[in-house]
Design a protein around this nucleic acid. Sequence first.
DNA 1: AGTTTTGTTATACATATAATAGAACAGGTT
DNA 2: AACCTGTTCTATTATATGTATAACAAAACT
Lengths: 129, 129
Amino acid sequence: MFIEIEANSSVPIYLQLVQQIIEGLAKGSLKPGDSLPSVRAFAADLGMNMHTVNKAYHYLEEKEFIRIVQKKGVVIHAKGIREASAADRNRLKQELRPIVAEALCLQMSQEEIKLLVKEIITDLKEKSL
Amino acid sequence: MFIEIEANSSVPIYLQLVQQIIEGLAKGSLKPGDSLPSVRAFAADLGMNMHTVNKAYHYLEEKEFIRIVQKKGVVIHAKGIREASAADRNRLKQELRPIVAEALCLQMSQEEIKLLVKEIITDLKEKSL
DNA sequence: AGTTTTGTTATACATATAATAGAACAGGTT
DNA sequence: AACCTGTTCTATTATATGTATAACAAAACT
């Protein structure tokens, strides 16, 4: 897992961490059962505060991507990541909506937007090599 | 233009306003040259502060979707919305990326994600009737 | 048994963003 | 002349973000 945090991003660094861990899961560099660094070790490694890492971990736990075991550590959900529920699907749709709308405003076609999606998936998977 | 603002959303209300204006543009209920309400009138209509509407307007002006004419008012960019530049395309890609990654984690396929995009576009366009 | 490591909790502080409020200004419209 | 426009200014409140220490209890390691 190579994590790169941009300090000057408008995206909060705890969310950047969340997103990059999710990307690690998507590309397969993180697998079910894998353990993640302790909040202190990760914080020192990334040059951020322990509480910031903790915030990211709890965010990921709420999404059921990781399991936080008291006094032990943090692991990727072992029983396999669940399939998208109807609620997940709807939430993702709501998140995609404003971006798709903006793309349409910039005169992109449905096919061009789908191509973006394809490119993103390619990018995500090729980095796992 | 029917605007609905959710007070309890985690999305700031000035951004909700931005997004719904962009959706109006995407679906065609707002056309190039159309004028938007004054900051005071819109604020009163939506039950929010003048400065909040102003913030949304300036956000949209930076994106070049509207033109703010001093002492006159606000209009949708008349010379037609520009086509997506390479920079726009890249920015949209970066915004889509974390959502697509999460969808992949929830075991959605590329086709399922593309279907989401299709549904969103259908939703956007059917509301223009 | 003792030390280290784990996530947790509590307090405190600094900064930025979001949102509201009221007032005043200058230029355009009616 | 009255009104409406976006702008600017000052102020206040609330929330989000991020850091900094410190202490706690239980698991793990030696």
